[in-house]
């Protein structure tokens, strides 16, 4: 494969990864909760987009706001009614609970949509820009753009709005934030809901780009954490940077002679442990949320 094509593939894949990891990073950084149901939220987003495409004929990219709203509501309810109850429990309890939710959601999606492989075939699927021998597919280009827009928007929201500041403050010091009059329960619900909404957006992109079935969320579980850990829990941009670095690793490692394709989780695991042991704060340094 030409170098230019590898570069383009990497940038597009990396930014998609960034979008998937964005919500994980936010929820983990602010609430210190590792949300294992994130993959299930991504899948819910994908099926929501798929449903709107087949039933209402709305393009998945156009329906992203609706998908995000849907996941936002689900995220809010899950946080408010379930996770809030164990927020002070040892972390394994929340870890286990989100894993249980993951199983539950995927099983339900499977009941509704079956485990058949689904895909969205837009008219522009397959078309794109050709620069020399390098092909840039439109749908991937748009996905990368959306990923960057989401990252920038989240960053702006956190630093420039009242609610965003409340989220940051809660993440830095929950008790101090409470004393300042911030409603922790609502702030957590908002944080978790935004995380779920971001997962929904990533799911819509997934639906547009790849064929998928309910168990595809698993593929993102480990990767999302590897990406978040790579980028550090620092900021939305950290997630994007982590996504790009991880995309690079995943693009390059199968090219190493003797390795070959198929080791995605093994790569994710190796990256995860290596970063945790050698650079516990991520490549970009200091933990800012905590």
């Amino acid at each position: 494969m030409a170098f230019g094509q590898i570069l383009v593939n990497w940038l597009l894949l990396g930014s998609l990864y960034g979008a998937v990891a964005l919500g994980v990073s936010l929820v983990w950084g602010i609430m210190n909760i590792v949300n294992l149901a994130h993959g299930a939220f991504v899948i819910l987003g994908a099926y929501a987009a798929f449903w709107m495409y087949t039933q209402l004929h709305i393009d998945p990219y156009i329906s992203i706001p609706l998908t995000m709203a849907f996941l936002f509501i689900i995220g809010w309810i899950v946080q408010y009614t379930l996770i809030n109850r164990v927020i002070r429990a040892p972390f394994l309890v929340t870890f286990l609970l989100t894993f249980g939710l993951d199983l539950l959601i995927i099983d339900l999606v499977q009941q509704i949509f079956t485990s058949d492989l689904r895909s969205v075939n837009t008219i522009y699927a397959g078309s794109g820009l050709d620069i020399g021998s390098t092909h840039i597919a439109f749908d991937r280009l748009i996905a990368a753009a959306i990923a960057i827009v989401l990252t920038a928007a989240l960053n702006y929201f956190l630093t420039h709005t009242r609610e965003g500041n409340a989220i940051l403050a809660t993440g830095m010091d929950r008790d101090a934030a409470r004393l300042m009059g911030i409603n922790i329960r609502n702030t957590y619900a908002l944080t978790f809901a935004i995380g779920a909404a971001l997962a929904g957006a990533a799911g819509a992109m997934l639906a547009e780009l790849y064929p998928f079935n309910p168990s595809n969320g698993d593929a993102f579980k480990l990767r999302a954490f590897a990406i978040v850990i790579l980028g550090g829990l620092g900021s939305p941009w950290g997630a994007l940077a982590g996504g790009l670095v991880f995309g690079l690793v995943e693009t390059v490692v199968p090219l190493i002679p003797g390795v070959g394709p198929g080791y995605d989780d093994a790569i994710a695991f190796a990256v995860l442990v290596a970063v945790l042991i050698f650079r516990p704060d991520g490549l970009l340094g200091k933990p800012f949320y905590r």
Binding site: F91, L92, D265, L272
Partner: peptide, 15 residues
């Protein structure tokens, strides 16, 4: 420790 240990061990199984 904590989350990191849990995720790393989860990763072992998946890998």
């Amino acid at each position: 420790r904590g989350h990191y240990f849990a995720i790393a061990t989860l990763g072992i199984a998946e890998a």
